[in-house]
């Protein structure tokens, strides 16, 4: 249940920031290459994650390659959320 809720809430967040529901279908595409995220929007996402989940991901903690698709972003949040 908890896992689903992180995933679902993350999908909502990413959808809101990317402003495109395509992210629910295409969960392994590179969001930066597709123009769905840029570096500034990615930071808004980190801030939103912190507000929503209390999970802090320092802006320089994760390389872009480890956080460039919907599934990878959810994974990064999930491991930190579970560690809490």
């Amino acid at each position: 249940m908890a896992e689903n809720s992180v995933e679902e809430r993350m999908l909502e967040l990413i959808e809101e920031i990317c402003d495109d529901d395509v992210i629910r279908e295409e969960r392994d595409v590179d969001l930066f290459e597709e123009g769905l995220l840029d570096s500034m929007a990615a930071i808004e996402l980190l801030v939103a994650i912190e507000t929503e989940f209390g999970v802090t991901i320092a802006p320089t903690a994760v390389e872009r390659e480890e956080m460039n698709t919907v599934n990878k972003i959810i994974y990064q949040v999930q491991i930190r959320y579970d560690a809490q």
Binding site: I43, L46, T51, P59, T60
Partner: peptide, 22 residues
Amino acid sequence: LRDFVFMRAVKSATRRKLFKDR
């Protein structure tokens, strides 16, 4: 600047709800 200024400024402003939306 993005990592050490923009990010921090946005973060602290969001936390304090200084502005009405993102």
